[in-house]
Design a protein around this nucleic acid. Structure first.
Lengths: 108, 108
DNA sequence: ACCAAAGTACGACCATCATCGAAGTTTGAC
DNA sequence: GTCAAACTTCGATGATGGTCGTACTTTGGT
Protein backbone atom coordinates (compact mmCIF):
# COMPACT_ATOMS: atom_id res chain seq x y z
CA UNK A 1 0.00 0.00 0.00
CA UNK A 2 0.92 3.63 -0.36
CA UNK A 3 2.60 5.38 2.49
CA UNK A 4 1.82 9.05 2.87
CA UNK A 5 4.75 11.16 3.98
CA UNK A 6 4.13 14.50 5.56
CA UNK A 7 6.29 17.40 6.55
CA UNK A 8 5.51 20.36 8.75
CA UNK A 9 3.99 22.28 5.89
CA UNK A 10 1.42 19.60 5.21
CA UNK A 11 0.22 19.70 8.77
CA UNK A 12 -1.09 23.18 8.26
CA UNK A 13 -4.86 23.10 7.86
CA UNK A 14 -6.94 25.53 5.77
CA UNK A 15 -7.02 29.17 6.83
CA UNK A 16 -10.11 30.86 5.42
CA UNK A 17 -10.15 34.63 5.24
CA UNK A 18 -12.46 36.15 7.81
CA UNK A 19 -13.73 38.54 5.15
CA UNK A 20 -15.39 35.56 3.51
CA UNK A 21 -16.84 34.21 6.72
CA UNK A 22 -20.45 35.12 7.54
CA UNK A 23 -21.02 37.20 10.65
CA UNK A 24 -23.08 34.34 12.00
CA UNK A 25 -20.11 32.00 12.06
CA UNK A 26 -17.84 34.61 13.57
CA UNK A 27 -20.34 35.23 16.34
CA UNK A 28 -20.76 31.54 17.00
CA UNK A 29 -17.01 31.31 17.37
CA UNK A 30 -16.85 34.24 19.76
CA UNK A 31 -19.82 33.38 21.93
CA UNK A 32 -18.01 30.60 23.71
CA UNK A 33 -16.24 31.90 26.83
CA UNK A 34 -13.23 29.63 26.44
CA UNK A 35 -12.69 30.81 22.89
CA UNK A 36 -13.16 34.41 23.92
CA UNK A 37 -10.56 33.85 26.61
CA UNK A 38 -8.11 32.62 23.98
CA UNK A 39 -8.78 35.61 21.77
CA UNK A 40 -8.49 37.99 24.69
CA UNK A 41 -5.14 36.59 25.70
CA UNK A 42 -3.83 36.77 22.16
CA UNK A 43 -5.10 40.32 21.93
CA UNK A 44 -3.57 41.38 25.22
CA UNK A 45 -0.30 39.55 24.64
CA UNK A 46 0.17 41.09 21.23
CA UNK A 47 2.26 38.03 20.43
CA UNK A 48 1.78 34.46 19.30
CA UNK A 49 1.73 31.56 21.71
CA UNK A 50 1.30 27.82 21.53
CA UNK A 51 -1.88 25.99 22.45
CA UNK A 52 -0.34 24.65 25.63
CA UNK A 53 0.95 27.99 26.85
CA UNK A 54 -2.36 29.43 27.93
CA UNK A 55 -4.04 27.48 30.61
CA UNK A 56 -7.63 26.75 29.84
CA UNK A 57 -10.29 25.22 32.07
CA UNK A 58 -10.79 22.33 29.65
CA UNK A 59 -9.03 19.17 28.55
CA UNK A 60 -6.41 19.11 25.81
CA UNK A 61 -8.74 17.62 23.25
CA UNK A 62 -11.36 20.24 23.96
CA UNK A 63 -8.74 22.95 23.66
CA UNK A 64 -7.78 21.60 20.24
CA UNK A 65 -11.42 21.82 19.25
CA UNK A 66 -11.67 25.47 20.32
CA UNK A 67 -8.54 26.47 18.43
CA UNK A 68 -9.94 24.74 15.36
CA UNK A 69 -13.19 26.65 15.57
CA UNK A 70 -11.32 29.94 15.83
CA UNK A 71 -9.12 29.06 12.87
CA UNK A 72 -12.07 27.96 10.74
CA UNK A 73 -13.76 31.26 11.45
CA UNK A 74 -10.71 33.07 10.15
CA UNK A 75 -9.90 34.56 13.53
CA UNK A 76 -6.51 33.02 14.19
CA UNK A 77 -3.59 31.71 12.20
CA UNK A 78 -1.83 28.53 13.22
CA UNK A 79 1.64 27.20 12.37
CA UNK A 80 3.92 24.58 13.78
CA UNK A 81 7.18 25.09 15.58
CA UNK A 82 8.46 21.64 16.46
CA UNK A 83 5.66 19.83 18.21
CA UNK A 84 4.08 23.06 19.30
CA UNK A 85 1.26 24.68 17.44
CA UNK A 86 1.57 28.42 17.51
CA UNK A 87 -1.40 30.74 17.30
CA UNK A 88 -1.68 34.32 16.20
CA UNK A 89 -4.64 36.64 16.14
CA UNK A 90 -5.57 37.89 12.67
CA UNK A 91 -6.33 41.31 14.01
CA UNK A 92 -6.12 43.46 10.93
CA UNK A 93 -8.33 41.21 8.88
CA UNK A 94 -10.91 40.98 11.63
CA UNK A 95 -10.95 44.74 12.05
CA UNK A 96 -11.41 45.17 8.35
CA UNK A 97 -14.19 42.60 8.08
CA UNK A 98 -16.05 43.62 11.23
CA UNK A 99 -14.94 47.03 12.43
CA UNK A 100 -15.28 47.52 16.14
CA UNK A 101 -16.21 43.96 16.91
CA UNK A 102 -12.93 42.75 18.39
CA UNK A 103 -12.54 45.92 20.39
CA UNK A 104 -16.05 45.59 21.77
CA UNK A 105 -15.64 41.98 22.79
CA UNK A 106 -12.10 41.78 23.95
CA UNK A 107 -11.29 45.26 25.06
CA UNK A 108 -13.38 44.10 27.99
CA UNK B 1 -60.22 31.63 46.67
CA UNK B 2 -58.51 34.89 45.83
CA UNK B 3 -58.83 36.33 42.40
CA UNK B 4 -55.84 38.24 41.14
CA UNK B 5 -56.71 41.30 39.13
CA UNK B 6 -54.22 42.75 36.73
CA UNK B 7 -54.05 45.90 34.72
CA UNK B 8 -51.76 46.82 31.85
CA UNK B 9 -49.04 47.92 34.19
CA UNK B 10 -48.83 44.54 35.88
CA UNK B 11 -48.31 42.79 32.60
CA UNK B 12 -44.97 44.47 32.22
CA UNK B 13 -42.20 42.02 33.07
CA UNK B 14 -38.81 42.94 34.61
CA UNK B 15 -36.47 45.08 32.55
CA UNK B 16 -32.90 44.62 33.75
CA UNK B 17 -30.36 47.27 32.83
CA UNK B 18 -27.93 46.04 30.20
CA UNK B 19 -25.11 47.63 32.16
CA UNK B 20 -25.65 44.97 34.79
CA UNK B 21 -25.83 42.13 32.30
CA UNK B 22 -22.65 40.14 31.66
CA UNK B 23 -21.21 40.29 28.17
CA UNK B 24 -21.71 36.55 27.97
CA UNK B 25 -25.47 36.88 28.25
CA UNK B 26 -25.61 39.74 25.78
CA UNK B 27 -23.66 37.71 23.26
CA UNK B 28 -25.86 34.68 23.77
CA UNK B 29 -28.84 36.89 23.05
CA UNK B 30 -27.29 38.31 19.90
CA UNK B 31 -25.89 35.13 18.44
CA UNK B 32 -29.28 33.90 17.34
CA UNK B 33 -30.08 35.04 13.81
CA UNK B 34 -33.77 35.59 14.47
CA UNK B 35 -32.99 37.79 17.46
CA UNK B 36 -30.38 39.66 15.49
CA UNK B 37 -32.97 40.24 12.80
CA UNK B 38 -35.31 41.76 15.36
CA UNK B 39 -32.58 44.02 16.68
CA UNK B 40 -31.55 45.02 13.17
CA UNK B 41 -35.07 45.96 12.24
CA UNK B 42 -35.53 48.00 15.40
CA UNK B 43 -32.21 49.66 14.74
CA UNK B 44 -33.03 50.45 11.13
CA UNK B 45 -36.59 51.53 11.83
CA UNK B 46 -35.53 53.90 14.57
CA UNK B 47 -39.01 53.41 15.99
CA UNK B 48 -40.91 50.97 18.16
CA UNK B 49 -43.06 48.23 16.72
CA UNK B 50 -45.20 45.41 18.02
CA UNK B 51 -44.17 41.76 18.03
CA UNK B 52 -46.54 40.95 15.21
CA UNK B 53 -45.41 43.75 12.94
CA UNK B 54 -42.13 42.25 11.87
CA UNK B 55 -42.47 39.01 10.06
CA UNK B 56 -40.19 36.37 11.41
CA UNK B 57 -39.49 32.89 10.04
CA UNK B 58 -40.80 31.25 13.22
CA UNK B 59 -44.08 30.56 14.96
CA UNK B 60 -45.70 33.08 17.29
CA UNK B 61 -44.72 31.20 20.41
CA UNK B 62 -41.12 31.07 19.29
CA UNK B 63 -41.22 34.77 18.52
CA UNK B 64 -42.44 35.46 22.05
CA UNK B 65 -39.50 33.48 23.35
CA UNK B 66 -37.01 35.52 21.32
CA UNK B 67 -38.44 38.84 22.45
CA UNK B 68 -38.21 37.61 26.03
CA UNK B 69 -34.56 36.72 25.66
CA UNK B 70 -33.80 40.15 24.25
CA UNK B 71 -35.67 41.86 27.06
CA UNK B 72 -33.97 39.77 29.75
CA UNK B 73 -30.62 40.73 28.31
CA UNK B 74 -31.52 44.39 28.68
CA UNK B 75 -31.53 44.97 24.94
CA UNK B 76 -35.14 45.94 24.37
CA UNK B 77 -37.93 47.55 26.32
CA UNK B 78 -41.47 46.21 26.06
CA UNK B 79 -44.80 47.82 26.85
CA UNK B 80 -48.39 47.14 26.03
CA UNK B 81 -50.70 49.12 23.82
CA UNK B 82 -53.99 47.31 23.83
CA UNK B 83 -53.32 43.71 22.99
CA UNK B 84 -50.15 44.61 21.20
CA UNK B 85 -46.77 44.36 22.82
CA UNK B 86 -44.55 47.14 21.63
CA UNK B 87 -40.78 46.85 21.51
CA UNK B 88 -38.08 49.46 21.55
CA UNK B 89 -34.35 49.11 21.25
CA UNK B 90 -32.45 50.38 24.30
CA UNK B 91 -29.77 51.86 22.11
CA UNK B 92 -28.15 54.39 24.38
CA UNK B 93 -27.76 51.97 27.25
CA UNK B 94 -26.31 49.29 24.99
CA UNK B 95 -23.85 51.74 23.50
CA UNK B 96 -22.80 52.82 26.94
CA UNK B 97 -22.41 49.29 28.26
CA UNK B 98 -20.71 47.84 25.18
CA UNK B 99 -19.41 50.58 22.93
CA UNK B 100 -19.24 49.61 19.29
CA UNK B 101 -21.02 46.30 19.71
CA UNK B 102 -24.39 47.20 18.29
CA UNK B 103 -22.83 49.06 15.41
CA UNK B 104 -20.60 46.11 14.60
CA UNK B 105 -23.41 43.59 14.64
CA UNK B 106 -26.29 45.47 13.19
CA UNK B 107 -24.71 48.09 11.01
CA UNK B 108 -24.24 45.01 8.86
C1' DA C 1 16.30 3.35 18.40
C1' DC C 2 13.68 4.89 22.12
C1' DC C 3 11.04 7.94 24.72
C1' DA C 4 8.54 11.96 26.20
C1' DA C 5 6.11 16.18 24.92
C1' DA C 6 2.53 18.40 22.34
C1' DG C 7 -1.29 17.94 19.86
C1' DT C 8 -4.98 15.46 17.04
C1' DA C 9 -8.78 12.24 15.87
C1' DC C 10 -12.62 9.79 17.15
C1' DG C 11 -16.62 8.33 19.57
C1' DA C 12 -19.68 8.92 23.21
C1' DC C 13 -22.26 11.54 26.39
C1' DC C 14 -25.02 15.19 27.99
C1' DA C 15 -26.95 19.79 28.56
C1' DT C 16 -28.81 23.48 26.36
C1' DC C 17 -31.89 25.67 23.39
C1' DA C 18 -34.67 26.75 19.29
C1' DT C 19 -38.77 25.06 17.76
C1' DC C 20 -43.64 23.82 17.58
C1' DG C 21 -48.69 23.13 18.61
C1' DA C 22 -52.39 23.38 21.70
C1' DA C 23 -54.62 25.62 25.22
C1' DG C 24 -54.98 29.78 27.99
C1' DT C 25 -55.18 35.07 28.96
C1' DT C 26 -55.97 39.84 28.12
C1' DT C 27 -57.86 43.56 25.67
C1' DG C 28 -60.78 46.18 22.56
C1' DA C 29 -64.70 46.33 19.51
C1' DC C 30 -69.43 45.58 18.62
C1' DG D 1 -71.59 39.56 26.83
C1' DT D 2 -69.41 37.72 22.94
C1' DC D 3 -65.92 37.43 19.75
C1' DA D 4 -61.58 38.01 17.55
C1' DA D 5 -56.84 39.59 17.69
C1' DA D 6 -52.49 39.42 19.84
C1' DC D 7 -49.76 37.39 22.59
C1' DT D 8 -48.25 33.90 26.46
C1' DT D 9 -47.61 29.52 28.76
C1' DC D 10 -46.55 24.94 28.86
C1' DG D 11 -44.79 20.66 27.71
C1' DA D 12 -42.44 17.87 24.12
C1' DT D 13 -39.04 17.19 20.73
C1' DG D 14 -34.97 17.32 18.11
C1' DA D 15 -30.50 19.24 16.83
C1' DT D 16 -26.38 21.27 18.07
C1' DG D 17 -22.28 21.64 20.35
C1' DG D 18 -19.07 21.54 24.43
C1' DT D 19 -16.99 18.06 26.98
C1' DC D 20 -14.17 14.07 27.98
C1' DG D 21 -11.04 9.88 27.64
C1' DT D 22 -8.47 6.88 24.84
C1' DA D 23 -5.71 5.91 21.24
C1' DC D 24 -2.82 7.81 17.73
C1' DT D 25 0.79 10.93 15.25
C1' DT D 26 4.57 13.89 14.84
C1' DT D 27 8.70 15.87 16.44
C1' DG D 28 12.93 16.56 19.06
C1' DG D 29 16.25 14.95 22.33
C1' DT D 30 19.23 11.42 24.11
Amino acid sequence: MTVTRRNGRDRIPPHPDVREIPLQQVLEALVDPVRRLIVSELYAAGADFSCGTIDLPVSKSTATHHFNVLREAGLIRQYYVGTSRMNSLRRDEIDEAFPGLLQALVGR
